[in-house]
Amino acid sequence: MTRRILVVDDSPSVRRMVAMTLKAAGYDVVEAGDGVEALEKVAGAEVHAVLTDQNMPRMDGLTFIREFRADASRHRIPIVFLSTESEGEIKERARAAGAIGWMVKPFDQAKLLSVMSRVVAA
């Protein structure tokens, strides 16, 4: 079964690079430019993991995670932050909201694939 990953980032170039990396590894990718668009795109759709940025227009990453997790059927879907921010406080807030991991931009493609392989297998 192909695993579907939701990639949420307001930077088209970051989304494109993440999507190309994941697609080359056999993942199906759904892209969104912010949390509002992401929620619209996954309404009624199955996703197996989420990569999200924090700083985005309309809905930031923390708010997106809370809204995404509000649907009980999504409580076990792994969410990983992919952000330029790396301070301890934001990481704690992300974990409290429901993120299970953190990657700092710019990302290493091999590390991204390693992380996604682990989280979708869990």
Rank of each mutant, 00 (worst) to 15 (best):
Y27T: 04
D28F: 10
D28C: 13
D28K: 07
D28W: 11
V30K: 01
E31I: 04
E31R: 00
G33A: 07
G33M: 08
G33P: 03
D34F: 08
E37N: 12
A38Q: 11
A38C: 07
L39A: 02
L39G: 10
E40C: 08
K41P: 12
K41N: 15
K41L: 14
A43P: 10
G44M: 06
G44A: 11
G44C: 12
A45W: 14
E46M: 05
H48L: 12
H48I: 05
H48S: 11
V50I: 00
L51C: 02
T52S: 05
Q54S: 05
M56S: 09
M56R: 05
R58Q: 14
M59A: 13
D60K: 08
D60G: 10
G61T: 09
F64V: 12
F64R: 07
I65Q: 08
I65G: 07
R69F: 06
A70D: 12
D71M: 08
A72H: 14
S73G: 06
S73M: 01
S73K: 13
R74F: 02
R74V: 00
R74K: 13
R76Q: 02
R76K: 05
P78V: 02
P78S: 13
I79M: 06
V80L: 15
V80Q: 11
F81Q: 03
F81T: 09
L82D: 05
S83H: 15
T84N: 12
K91V: 12
E92Y: 06
R93I: 10
R93M: 10
A96Y: 11
A97F: 00
G98W: 09
G98R: 02
G98M: 08
G98F: 01
A99D: 00
G101R: 09
G101P: 05
W102I: 04
W102H: 12
W102P: 05
